[in-house]
């Protein structure tokens, strides 16, 4: 464990807790893409299949349980909670996210480190995580504005992946044989997807005005 990875995990934890808190407190999920949340639930489900078979540390298992629990809770709130579900703008959140999953699955079947059931699904979860934010970014473009909690959510999510890139660089220089191109490239693509959002987020923060994403 290094400080970059810890910072990344804490930022990631903060992002899901900020979102869960928002939805639980104000009983609204306006501006949040259910598609992205469903994709994240699938990412965690396919990423943590080994939670019962391989034990890394208490921290690792605890965090996996928190991420699984929070992502499925968010999906549950948005789909089934009597009050929250009414605030979900389903006609705006129309990104066909199943079309994201198929290419990720095909790519995982083609490019992976080992051709085993767990490894292919784990690789699938990496590719899917890289693109899972797309429905949310498309929704923000459509709704043209962003309330600050959703903005914080995306900002923290991007920050978590940015810290992980620093973690990979650190591990590359400190651990022999630590070379994982698939993880690195997927993580880099994911962070780049956030880059333009960060740019507009920073502009709005600098000019101290409401975040307006270009059409």
């Amino acid at each position: 464990m290094n400080i970059f990875r810890l910072a990344g995990d804490m930022t990631h934890l903060a992002s899901v807790l900020v979102l869960l808190l928002k939805i639980h407190t104000i009983k609204s999920c306006a501006g949040v893409s259910l598609k992205t949340q469903e994709l994240y639930a699938i990412v965690f489900a396919t990423r943590y299949l080994d939670i019962l078979t391989s034990f890394v540390s208490i921290y690792n298992t605890l965090m996996k349980l928190i991420f699984l629990g929070s992502s499925f809770s968010i999906v549950w709130y948005m789909k089934y909670h009597k009050t929250v579900r009414r605030t979900y703008d389903r006609d705006q959140d129309t990104f066909r996210h199943w079309f994201l999953m198929l290419p990720c699955l095909l790519l995982a079947l083609l490019i992976h480190e080992k051709f085993t059931f767990f490894e292919v699904l784990w690789t699938f979860s990496l590719y899917l995580e890289a693109v899972a934010i797309l429905p949310q970014l498309v929704l923000l473009q459509r709704t043209r504005n962003i309330d600050n909690l959703t903005g914080q959510y995306i900002f923290l999510l991007g920050g978590y992946r940015g810290f992980y890139i620093l973690n990979w660089i650190y591990r590359y220089f400190t651990e022999p044989h630590y070379v994982h191109w698939i993880t690195w490239i997927a993580g880099l693509v994911q962070t780049l997807l956030y880059a333009d959002f960060f740019y507009y987020y920073f502009l709005s923060w600098k000019n101290n005005k409401k975040l307006q994403l270009p059409a």
């Binding site: 080994d50 690792n60 965090m63 784990w122 630590y178």
Partner: peptide, 10 residues
């Protein structure tokens, strides 16, 4: 030892 893995990462 066995090659390092990213499976210890979340």
């Amino acid at each position: 030892g066995e090659e390092s893995s990213t499976k210890d990462e979340l």
